[in-house]
Design a protein around this nucleic acid. Structure first.
Length: 423
RNA sequence: GGAGAGAUGGCAGAGUGGUCGAUUGCGGCGGUCUUGAAAACCGUUGAGGUGUAACAGCCUCCGGGGGUUCGAAUCCCUCUCUCUCCGCCA
């Protein structure tokens, strides 16, 4: 949710900035201005009515105290009239406030100035590429074949036990998965992130706070008997730890990391996107989350991109960094960098991390504030990124490191796996 | 799942229909004292909205929602959550 003050101050500028998302905000913005004015005006009338009622009630109290209760009848009648008027005004106010809130939450985050124009991922701006692009991988076998060859991931068993998109890792495959989780968590701890183990189910308030509800309702698994949602990412429980909080400025930035299993319904996905490990209903991910001072959030975003870069370097995977264009930018994000690794057999880039600055979008929804040095309560900025999502890292490791002898494990991981090769 | 108790400001804990946004203690902040610190003493200290040049003023909020009343933190209904006991159980 954007700050309504921006619309009050300069609505034309707001509309202009939305253009990079290919979004015409004229209608909603003008409606918001109307509703905002109505709301304030009605609020004033209501307050005055209530003030008058309070004065009369006090007066009646005095009459009772001094034993002149018989004189209160006229005042009581007047009070009842005011009460009815207040009720009507309250209804008007509620209607305006409700529509205002709905219209506000219907607006995506204002894009950062650096967001490039464009409509699809083809328009994303590649800001960095690193590592040897493996031309030598002409005979590379895709990971779903390697998985069977070395008996490390059983897709069929997963389909039988649950359904498609729920693979079962086995033997060295399971061990490699566990190694990656430990590696990522240890690295994050070293970079100053505090480790959390959050719940995998969240309530509706939390899902609203980070922006999954109401818009991405269908992407989450829902448990109706308890009205809880399986988390699509640990961003949801971790960021919501700070919901309805006023932090001290000196406690910023807050840096958290968490491993969790993630659940996504992925309704509407098909084809090569869902082959093998490319897109799953259940997968593991280590996430990093920051809550920062508004003036330092872009510095934090750069720091997070740099941090994920070091992970990919240690895993010796070729990768590139893309700044998402307006059309590809998520609803809640002001600026997002995608990190993509090259997958030798599929010969394409796989997104393994998405690092976003939400500015006040989530903070506004969850009332996450901090007390500044001059005593004001201001909205904080929230950011998060994958560091990293496991399945596609696994896919790239398998495909890129294959040889006649087997699949070699990057040096940085060997102390976690306890083996150097899968053969 | 069954029975009972409870939910008040950062925390602890009063308040049971009429200036109660709420006594008090702790904590926090500012000050006096001190070379400095501690102790002591004095003052200050919730959030949101509206309003103002800035103050002031006004409104709302005592877990959520609804009701009774001229007037509710206080009475009634309902939901949620927490605690204790029993049952079940990794």
């Amino acid at each position: 949710m954007i700050d309504i003050q921006l619309i009050r101050d300069n609505s034309a500028e707001v509309i202009r900035r939305y253009e990079v998302r290919n979004f015409d905000a004229t209608g909603p913005v003008n409606r918001i201005k109307e509703l905002d004015a109505t709301r304030r005006q009605t609020q004033k009338q209501l307050d005055d009515t209530l003030a008058e009622g309070n004065a009369i009630a006090r007066e009646i109290g005095q009459l009772f105290k001094t034993g002149r209760s018989s004189e209160a009848a006229a005042l009581k009648e007047q009070s009842l009239l005011l009460k009815q008027r207040a009720k009507d005004l309250q209804e008007q106010l509620d209607m305006a406030a409700k529509e205002l809130s709905e219209t506000m939450t219907g607006l995506p985050m204002l894009p950062h100035h650096s967001v490039p124009p464009g409509t699809t991922e083809a328009d994303n701006e590649i800001v960095h590429t690193e590592g040897d692009l493996p031309g030598l991988f002409n005979n590379a076998v895709p990971h779903w074949e390697l998985a069977g060859k070395y008996d490390i991931i059983d897709f069929e068993a997963g389909t039988k036990v649950t359904g498609s998109g729920f693979p079962i890792y086995k033997g060295k495959g399971a061990r490699l998965q566990r190694a990656l989780i430990s590696f990522f968590l240890d690295e994050a701890a070293q970079a100053g992130y505090t480790e959390y183990q959050p719940p995998l189910l969240v309530n509706a308030d939390s899902a609203f706070g980070t922006g999954q509800l109401p818009d991405k309702d269908g992407q989450m698994y829902h448990v109706p008997s308890d009205n809880l949602y399986l988390i699509p990412t640990s961003e949801v429980p971790v960021t919501n730890i700070f919901r309805d909080m006023i932090l001290n400025e000196k406690d910023l930035p807050v840096k958290c990391t968490a491993h969790s299993v993630c659940f996504r319904r992925e309704a509407g996905s098909y084809g090569k996107d869902v082959r093998g490990l490319n897109r799953l209903h259940q997968f593991d991910k280590v996430e990093i989350v920051q809550v920062t001072h508004p003036e330092k959030s872009y510095q934090a975003l750069d720091e997070m991109v740099n941090y994920v870069t070091t992970l990919l370097q240690k895993l010796e995977l070729p990768f590139r960094v893309a700044r998402l264009c307006g059309g590809d930018l998520g609803f809640a994000a002001a600026l997002t960098y995608d990190m993509e690794v090259y997958s030798a057999a599929q010969k394409r880039w796989l997104e393994v991390s998405s690092i976003s600055n939400f500015e006040t979008y989530q903070a506004q929804r969850m009332k996450l504030r901090f007390r500044s040095q001059d005593g004001k309560n201001l909205l904080a900025h929230t950011l998060n990124g994958s560091a990293l999502a496991l399945p596609r890292i696994m896919a790239a490791l398998l495909e890129n490191n294959q040889s006649e002898e087997g699949i070699s494990i990057p040096a940085a991981l060997q102390k976690y796996t306890g083996f150097a090769i899968i053969s």
